Amino acid sequence: MSLINNLKREIKNKKLYFIIISVCILVYSLSIYFIMSSFEEKSVISIVSTLDGQNGMAGSAAFIYLYTPILFFGINSHIISSEKEGFIIKMKTRKNILNNHVFFVIALSAIVSLLIVWLGYSIGWVYGGGFENLWPKRDRLYKLPQYKNLDILGVLNSIPIYIVFLKTFIIKFLGLSVIGFLIIILKNIINNNGILAIVVLLVPFIDFEFLNSAILMNKFSLTLETWVSSSDFIINIAYLLFLLIALYLVGREMYKDKDFISKGF
C-alpha cells in the first residue's frame, strides 16, 4: 500500500511534467494532421500509425524522437528524487525502492499509451472523416506477394474498433515499459546524466537504423502484419513480456547490493 501511496504522491508532484508531455503529444499529433492534410486518401490509421509501422503517433519515428526522451526525463528525474536518504529509510528495503521505480515506469507508460490512443484516434477520426475510413483503401503494402490471395481490406475492416484501440494500447504500453525498465538499469551503470541520455536515445535509434529494427522497434510497431496476423501480434507481446521479466530480474540483482551512499544520487 505504501508503494501505491508513493506512486500517487510522485504523480501529483510531477503534475507539470504530465501537462508538458500531454501538450507535446498533442502538438505532435496535430503536426502530423496538418502535414498529411493535403493527401488525397485520408484514413484514421494514417494519423495513428502508418501500415509500415514507421510514421504516425504510434510509429517508430515518434517512439525514438518523442516518447523515449519523454520517458528518460521523467524516469531519470523520478530516480534522482527518490533515491535520497529520507526516501531510502522510508522504503526500508532495496527491493521496495526498485519496485517503486517499476510502478512509476508502468504508470508513466500507461498514461503515455492512453494519450496516444485517445489523441491519435480522436484526431484521426476528424482527419479521416469517421471510423468508416479507419484503413486506407489503397496502400502499396496490400500488393506484397504474401497477400496476393488475401482480401487485405476485407480482413482489416473485419477487426472490431475496440480491438484496434486495445492492440494499439497494449503494444505501446509494453514497448514503453521495456524502454523504461532499461532506463532504470542503465541509470545504475551510468552516473553521468548527459552520457546516460545519449545512451538511452541511441539504443532504439541504432536498432532502427542499423539492425533493421530486429531487436526492439519491430516489436513495438503496429505494422500491416501485426493487424492481419493475430499470431504475429501474440509473438510480439510474448517477446516484450519476456524482455520485461528479464530486465526486472537483472534490475533486482543490481539493487540487491546497490550502495546508495557512495553513488551520490
Rank of each mutant, 00 (worst) to 15 (best):
M57F: 02
I89C: 12
I237K: 02
Y121G: 06
F208H: 07
F18H: 08
I25T: 05
K148H: 10
L216H: 00
N96E: 12
N212P: 09
N5A: 09
S231Q: 13
I190W: 05
L108M: 15
L108A: 13
F104G: 00
N13A: 11
Y162E: 11
M36W: 07
S43G: 01
K12A: 15
L196V: 07
F87C: 09
L156P: 06
N188V: 04
N133R: 06
F104V: 04
N99R: 12
L243Y: 10
K143N: 15
F104N: 02
F103Y: 15
I170Y: 06
I88C: 14
W227Q: 13
S2L: 15
I183N: 01
A110M: 09
I32C: 07
K14I: 12
L119E: 10
L211D: 08
G56E: 05
L222C: 04
F181I: 03
F260L: 08
K256N: 15
K84G: 08
L244R: 00
W135C: 07
E40T: 14
S37T: 11
I198Y: 08
L186W: 01
N76Y: 06
I179E: 03
L224I: 13
F18A: 13
P69R: 14
Y142D: 14
T93G: 13
Y65N: 13
K12R: 10
W135E: 10
I80A: 09
L202G: 08
M57L: 15
Y67P: 00
I21S: 08
I152F: 11
T226S: 03
R140C: 00
L153K: 12
I171Q: 00
I47N: 03
E41I: 11
D232N: 08
G53Q: 04
L26E: 02
G175R: 01
N191M: 14
I45H: 06
N149Y: 14
I235R: 02
S213W: 03
G130D: 09
L150T: 15
R138A: 09
S29D: 12
F181H: 09
N55K: 00
I190C: 05
I159R: 06
D139N: 11
A107Y: 09
L150D: 06
V27E: 11
A110Y: 02
S60F: 02
I189W: 04
N5V: 02
F39E: 12
L186R: 03
N96C: 08
S22K: 04
V178S: 03
L182Y: 07
I20M: 12
T226L: 01
V27T: 04
L134Q: 01
S38D: 11
I45D: 02
S29W: 07
I4W: 12
K8Q: 14
L186F: 06
L243C: 14
F165P: 07
N157F: 02
N6W: 09
N236D: 06
F181D: 05
W135G: 08
F18S: 11
L196I: 09
F173D: 00
A58Q: 08
Q146L: 10
V105I: 15
L141I: 14
K167P: 02
K14W: 05
A110N: 09
Y33A: 00
L216I: 07
L3G: 00
S81T: 15
L150R: 12
I245N: 03
N212Y: 10
D207I: 07
L241N: 12
L115G: 05
F39Y: 10
S177H: 06
S109H: 01
L241V: 15
L247R: 01
K167W: 01
I20K: 06
I97C: 05
N13T: 08
